[in-house]
């Protein structure tokens, strides 16, 4: 039962042209790191530049972009197309559908992002601790982003636009201006993990206490999962025109 769900979800997410596009985005991070390395930079600078590359580009742009697209298409696209009916008209607990979809989108997002982050980190500076810290940050961030976006796709049919607006306006704009909003920025949660685990090179990544980030992050994930399950249990399917 679960394996059938997993294989359908995996194929739906991976079988599309845009997965290739998303993989190219990850490759872009590596390419920038290579170009930077080829310019033969001084050691003192490379740690800071690599950190900025991983933080601003990897965690700040790539991760939310990939997570919003993967997360909102895991269930949202099936709802929009109407194919979700082939999962819902089965004696499968809705809870299980949500959890499998979540796990798969998390996995796919990590597959698309984390290797690129590790490789870019190792190429950019070679500091293993920094690369590892950001790898963990990308995995944790991917979990939080995808759960939130999967839940969002069950709440509104315009989840991708709303998600993009959240990333650009809230995380990019508002939280840059108003420090008080940073505790509810997923980017800051991920960066807090990078700072905590990334060694001395990652210092200054986040503007948030590690424990604050962990607690708020955990609350957000649990709440999003519960919302998603609840919404899928009561989702109504209308006909073509609805």
């Amino acid at each position: 039962m679960t394996s059938a769900l997993v294989s359908i979800t995996l194929r739906a997410l991976l079988n599309r042209r845009r997965t290739l596009g998303l993989a190219l985005l990850g490759a872009l991070l590596v390419v920038v790191a290579i170009i930077y390395r080829l310019s033969d930079p001084p050691d003192a600078q490379s740690l800071d530049v690599t950190r900025r590359l991983l933080a601003d580009f990897g965690i700040g742009v790539l991760l939310p972009l990939v997570a919003v697209i993967v997360g909102t298409s895991a269930i949202g696209a099936e709802l929009e197309d109407g194919t979700i009916v082939y999962l819902l008209a089965r004696p499968v607990p809705r809870r299980l559908i949500v959890l499998v979809k979540l796990a798969i989108s998390w996995l796919v997002t990590c597959l698309l992002i984390t290797p690129a982050i590790v490789i870019a980190g190792l190429i950019g500076n070679g500091d293993v601790e920094l690369a590892a810290g950001y790898a963990v940050a990308s995995v944790v961030g991917a979990l939080e982003y995808t759960t939130v976006f999967v839940a969002l796709s069950l709440v509104t049919s315009r989840a991708l636009i709303v998600g993009l607006a959240y990333v650009v306006v809230w995380e990019g704009f508002v939280s840059a201006l108003f420090a008080g909003t940073r505790p509810i920025s997923i980017r800051q949660h991920a960066l807090a993990w990078a700072e905590a685990l990334g060694g001395p090179g990652a210092a200054g990544s986040a503007d948030l206490e590690f424990m604050t980030a962990v607690v708020i992050g955990a609350v957000v994930v649990v709440a999003a999962v519960l919302v998603a399950i609840r919404r899928l249990e009561t989702v109504e399917l209308r006909g073509e025109t609805a």
Binding site: L25, L28, V61, L62, L65, T72, L160, L164, V168
Partner: peptide, 14 residues
């Protein structure tokens, strides 16, 4: 439309 919006934003953000 949503994918188009994402792609345009991605170009400028990245």
């Amino acid at each position: 439309r949503a994918y188009a919006a994402g792609a345009v934003l991605a170009l400028f953000l990245i």
